[in-house]
Design a protein around this nucleic acid. Structure first.
Length: 601
RNA sequence: GGGCGCGUCGCACAGCACGGACCAGUGCCCCGGAUUCCUAAUCCGGUUGACGUGGGUUCAAAUCCCACCGCGCCCGCCA
């Protein structure tokens, strides 16, 4: 319903966005004719969703009211007096609206030509050189990924892809917390000889084989039990506290780093299975060792709202920032002189600000207070810049609520992927009996990853998701494999065409692409650049997933209803060009979502 | 108690930024069809039905405002 006409602007949009070629001149003509609202206001008013017999519409209630005129009259007048607009074959008034119908041939030719020229760059924009840092995932190195934790990684990774497509140079960072209590628990238990482990912790190793399990799985086993144990055993808690303190002071044994490193590598292997990787890793300890945390502490001591607590702890009075803490203060330095996480995070952000024009953090919604505290602390030390936060809600388990590694109520990413791969393997085999094992495996793995990735990405970040196996494992309908299947179909059709010696025309004849299915497909194809621009601006990566489904859907309808290779002459060539354009757009969308492009499946 | 977020067909989601019409879309489920033809993980058609409640603003509200209800998360010298 309306909108979508916003101008991503700043460049010659018509060179990268087929709809801009249609909408741009339309906006110009309307702005001139209305002689009231400016260009941007007119563009905002436009509805580019398309409907029954129209592609672009403008409601005139508001402009008419401002001009003290009747909207229907103005609509009729406008429809009659507007000059000819390139690409628009028909305009007509309906009530308070003027509807414009694009010339389908014109739109098809422009869109297909642009896709052919832009290739894998279709959908991307030439942006500014302003660099962006997207920090995401940053999970403590203490246990394997469960699918709740992985939502962060998928949103962050996809956001990075989308921002790059929108024209920003993006660097992704994973902040590795090797200082805190969580990772200290790992070293605390594993640095003890197993004979001395409390039985309830040792029990977690039952049936485990160090040689067969990846480090994150194996070394992460005792974590929930350790977490519970230290709550009820003060002497253990004291040991842990002392270890934490030593870690912060930098004189802990080197084995701690080895444990963190090993678990992290395991976790990254998990993420690699769903196509997530990082440009850079920032170890929290490095900020302590290079003195940047200390410099932050010095600045915080001089902060306008700094207060020293009775035991020597340093706090910031946050009452002016309206933070919803009971005591309206944020501790930044403990009584024992060590720092807390927010303090170190300030140092990390200063480092990011020094290198990047834009700083984006992907955070679970339980970190909201921390995000606000971080902003307050940055303000306190006189920093004027602030990070942008992309918050997401949790994936919950029916009856269990939010997943918790500590509580052991999790569905592991690896388990989900394993199950998905098993199902995909069986499916691929039965459909492609002639395929070798290697090829089957490769396709199954790609489909499993696609299903899981898409399933999590399709929901808006701010919605919580109730996890259900059967939904996560679906390969039909609104799913990753549906998109991948469409791409494979298009690829296979093009392959066949080339085998039969049918080649792509230098230029498609748009006047031959006029069936409803063809027109609908062209329209969806033309939408990709705007969809990318909107997703980047709003950080709503789920809209790309929605677009992908629309595109696959339109392509499949066309595919089913329209013979291509069996058509003749120019019709065959033009349809083939439409298939090629669809394959390109589908492939680009798949890349945006981080799904593998399969030539067959 | 305070803060933030969410509430749309039986289920799961989109639409809300910047309020617009013409049936509020989609997937799953259910029913009926399509394969001598480019991959049926698909397509075509059908049934059902929903904007949490109550107010307000407006020519126009799923969309904006207020209140309430329900659910989730947070309110550590944890991270």
């Amino acid at each position: 319903m309306a909108k979508g006409a916003s101008d991503p602007g700043g460049q010659d949009a018509a060179a990268v966005d087929p709809l801009a070629a249609l909408v741009g001149p339309l906006v110009d003509a309307l702005t001139a004719a209305l002689a009231g609202p400016d260009r941007a206001a007119v563009a905002r008013l436009l509805d580019t969703d398309g409907g029954d017999g129209w592609d672009v519409a403008i409601p005139l209630h508001r402009v008419a009211a401002a001009a003290h005129r009747s909207a229907p009259e103005l609509a009729i007048e406008l429809a009659n007096t507007l000059p000819a607009i390139p690409g628009v074959v028909r305009r007509f008034a309906v009530g308070a609206y003027v509807n414009f119908e694009a010339d389908p041939a014109w739109l098809a030719e422009r869109t297909l030509a642009m896709i052919a020229v832009r290739g894998d760059r279709y959908g991307t924009w030439e942006g500014s050189p302003a660099t962006v840092c997207v920090e995401h995932t940053s999970a403590n190195p203490n246990a394997p990924f469960h699918i709740g934790r992985v939502r962060n990684a998928l949103i962050g990774d996809t956001l990075a892809r989308v921002l790059r497509a929108a024209g920003s140079p993006v660097t992704t960072q994973y902040y590795v917390d090797d200082i805190g209590r969580q990772s200290a628990m790992v070293t605390w238990i594993w640095s003890k000889p197993k004979e001395s482990w409390p039985p309830e912790i040792l029990e977690t190793l039952q049936g485990a084989d160090e040689r067969e399990e990846r480090a994150d799985h194996y070394l992460g086993r005792p974590y929930p039990a350790v977490s519970a144990y230290v709550k009820t055993h003060p002497e253990a808690a004291a040991e842990l506290a002392s270890l934490s303190e030593r870690l912060e002071r930098g004189d802990a044994s080197p084995e701690h780093r080895r444990y963190c490193e090993a678990i992290l590598q395991g976790m990254l292997a998990s993420l690699a299975r769903v196509g997530v990787s990082f440009d850079e890793f920032v170890w929290e300890s490095s900020l302590l060792h290079d003195g940047s945390v200390e410099r932050v502490v010095e600045r915080l001591r001089k902060a306008p709202h700094a207060v020293v607590e009775e035991n020597g702890a340093l706090a910031i009075d946050t009452s002016v920032y309206g933070l919803p803490t009971e005591e309206a203060r944020a501790i930044v330095l403990r009584g024992n002189g060590t720092t807390v996480y927010p303090t170190r995070d300030v140092a990390y952000h200063l480092q990011k600000f020094a290198r990047f024009a834009r700083v984006v953090d992907v955070l679970g919604q339980d970190h909201l207070l921390h995000a606000k505290t971080l902003k307050a602390l940055l303000t306190e030390i006189g920093e004027t810049r602030e990070p942008e936060f992309v918050l997401y809600q949790y994936i919950t388990l029916p009856g269990e609520g939010r997943m918790s590694t500590r509580k052991g109520t999790v569905v592991l990413l690896d388990s989900l992927l394993d199950e998905a791969t098993d199902r995909a393997r069986a499916e691929v085999r039965s459909r492609n009996p002639e395929l070798g094992e290697g090829a089957v495996e490769e396709i199954a793995v790609a489909l499993a990853a696609g299903a899981v990735r898409y399933h999590i990405l399709r929901v808006a970040a701010e919605k919580s998701v109730a996890f259900r196996w059967e939904d996560a494992l679906s390969f039909e309908g609104r799913s990753g494999p549906f998109l991948q299947y469409s791409f494979a179909r298009a690829t296979s059709l093009l392959r066949k065409a080339s085998e039969e010696g049918v080649s792509l025309p230098p230029k498609a004849d748009g006047s031959l692409l006029t069936t409803p299915a063809e027109r609908a497909l062209v329209r969806v194809l033309a939408r990709l650049p705007r969809t990318v621009a909107n997703a980047a601006r709003t950080t709503h990566v789920h809209s790309i997933a929605g677009y992908g489904h629309d595109l696959a859907d339109a392509f499949n309808s066309f595919y089913q209803l329209t013979p291509v290779l069996k058509a003749e002459g120019g019709e065959r060539e033009s349809r083939l060009a439409l298939v090629a354009a669809s394959r390109t757009a589908l492939g680009n969308t798949l890349a945006l979502l981080g799904l593998a492009r399969l030539d067959r499946m």
